[in-house]
């Protein structure tokens, strides 16, 4: 008979406690009354939902997320496709470039972007003063490693050469080949990349806050500093968004044994 794995259970229980107690505590905070601090009321959720700033910041971040996803995919899908098809020599170059954001994390990137576009190039205000332009271009860089690894895995799992030749032989143009043959075959990888990007954008605080934009994460920070108990409701909501994005990726990738990936919102 096998021994009962006593130490393993101890670690699992300790780990479980460490990870769940903060969530439970946040939940308990979120149902306290904002005036008296007594249990139980859903008023904090109401405060958040009825705050117009919540919706406007949420909208800004969602739009930036959609723009980032769109720009990333139009930029990276053709590139990675082409590298797999014609320029396999470039694959290590792309893999290397996907490591660069590790050495240039958001806090360094924002210093560089502000110095370069404000002080060196004197970029006009429509770029520097507009969250949709400025943050989207920065977030494409932040998302690049995750989008790259996801798409690269997708392209490796299909036969790019055969699909392309078959499609071209049947008279399809390059555009049709890419959009109607290749894209449907890597749609799961592309969707995972999209959800990862969504999670990045909905959590990114460093660049948004230091370049003085109001996005969803900076709104959370503002509520944190000003309204104690509603902040708990907002925290759970933000956790829910991360859950949603990660679960979608898991459900999408289940068929081909997809791996959960890690993005950075720290």
């Amino acid at each position: 008979m096998r021994r009962f794995p006593f130490s393993a259970w101890i670690w699992i229980l300790l780990g479980g406690a460490y990870f769940f107690i903060p969530l439970i505590a946040t939940f308990l905070f979120s149902i306290k009354d904002n005036r008296t601090g007594n249990c139980c009321s859903l008023g904090n959720y109401g405060t958040i939902i009825h705050d117009p700033q919540f919706w406007s910041s949420f909208k800004v971040s969602m739009l930036i997320a959609v723009a980032t996803i769109g720009l990333s995919l139009t930029l990276f899908v053709p590139t990675i496709y082409w590298v797999h098809l014609k320029l396999p020599r470039l694959r290590p170059v792309l893999a290397f470039m996907a490591l660069v954001p590790f050495v240039v994390p958001p806090i360094i990137l924002v210093v560089g972007l502000l110095k370069f576009y404000k002080d060196t190039l004197h970029t006009p205000f429509w770029y520097l003063g507009n969250p949709y332009w400025f943050l989207t271009t920065a977030y494409v860089i932040l998302a690049f490693p995750y989008v790259y690894f996801s798409l690269d895995a997708g392209f490796r799992s299909i036969d790019v050469h055969t699909l392309t030749e078959a499609s071209l032989n049947l008279g399809a143009s390059w555009r049709t080949t890419l959009l109607r043959v290749i894209l449907p075959n890597i749609r799961i990888a592309a969707l995972s990349a999209a959800f990862l990007t969504l999670a990045i954008v909905m959590g990114e605080f460093t660049i948004a806050s230091l370049s003085q934009f109001n996005t969803f994460p900076t709104y959370i920070e503002y509520i944190n500093e000003t309204k104690g108990f509603p902040a708990a409701a907002l925290t759970l909501l933000s956790f829910g968004i991360t859950w949603g994005a990660m679960l979608s990726i898991l459900l999408l990738g289940r068929k081909r044994g997809g791996r959960v990936q890690v993005v950075g919102g720290r």
């Binding site: 107690i21 505590a25 959590g203 920070e221 944190n224």
Partner: peptide, 28 residues
Amino acid sequence: TFSGVAANFGGIPLAFAFIATVGTIGIV
């Protein structure tokens, strides 16, 4: 699954979760 979420749950909301737990008036 949980790690996938927690590893991505950083920043301001995470800080608040710990304030609610072991902050000066935290639950714990």
